[in-house]
């Protein structure tokens, strides 16, 4: 059991820190640059991404194992995942609007934005790539749980990156850079430096978790 916890904790924290989707794998850069101007909108976007990533992975992972792999249709992964995630996000939006209006008001604006966002598709595909092989070895349940933890970690990592970068950006807004750097150039430079700081986590998490348990 302890080994299981260690596995899941390692996956979770390495997705948040070491393999951070935005800052290390460079997926989902468009919302990262577009919605990070204000703290409340970046938090809203981050939470929406967590929800969508987990639900999307929960649907696409079994679909890959039981529908695509079982019928040798692995090459259709991308197109089918896009289709399924698009339908899913629309469905979540309609359901939230009907049953949980408060949550809809908080996430509503951001849900359509991430319908076919690359980081959502990325986590669905990479979860299959990384943990699809574990189905044969450890059984479907365990591999599925691994994929879900991976998706949650990716979402939390996205939220972390958004909030951190929002803070960086509010400092940059008040600074007085040279005329040619104003606007997007200085934003990209500061994004690069923020990303650089996350490179320092490489190889750290596995050893920490191993030491803790």
């Amino acid at each position: 059991m302890s080994a299981n916890i260690a596995t899941f904790a390692t996956i979770l924290f390495s997705m948040i820190l070491v393999n951070n989707y935005v800052l290390v794998q460079f997926l989902g850069i468009c919302p990262f640059l577009g919605v990070s101007k204000k703290l409340d909108s970046s938090v809203g976007m981050g939470v929406a991404v967590i929800v969508v990533m987990v639900i999307a992975t929960a649907v696409t992972f079994p679909m890959q194992i039981f529908l695509l792999d079982a019928n040798n249709l692995g090459y259709m992964q991308t197109i089918i995942f896009i289709l399924v995630i698009a339908v899913l996000v629309q469905l979540i939006e309609i359901t939230l609007k009907r049953y949980i209006p408060a949550l809809y008001n908080a996430l509503g604006v951001y849900l359509p934005l991430i319908t076919t966002n690359c980081c959502v598709l990325g986590v669905a595909i990479l979860a299959v790539q990384d943990y699809g092989g574990d189905v044969a070895e450890y059984g479907f349940g365990f591999a599925f749980a691994e994929a879900l933890v991976c998706a949650a970690g990716a979402g939390i990592g996205f939220l972390l990156a958004m909030v951190l970068f929002c803070g960086v950006r509010s400092r940059v807004e008040n600074a007085d850079p040279p005329e040619s750097f104003k606007g997007l150039p200085i934003t990209l430079v500061s994004a690069a430096i923020t990303s650089l700081s996350f490179m320092g986590f490489g190889g750290l998490v596995e050893n920490i978790i191993a030491a803790l348990l």
Binding site: L73, V87, Q90
Partner: peptide, 30 residues
């Protein structure tokens, strides 16, 4: 024929998704 099979699977998935969304927007309209 793998091509026919792939097209059929994708079409069915698309139809199913469309149907679900139509039903959802009908039954959960606000």
């Amino acid at each position: 024929n793998p091509i026919v099979f792939a097209v059929v699977v994708l079409t069915l998935l698309g139809l199913a998704g469309g149907l679900i969304l139509v039903l959802a927007s009908k039954f959960m309209a606000v």
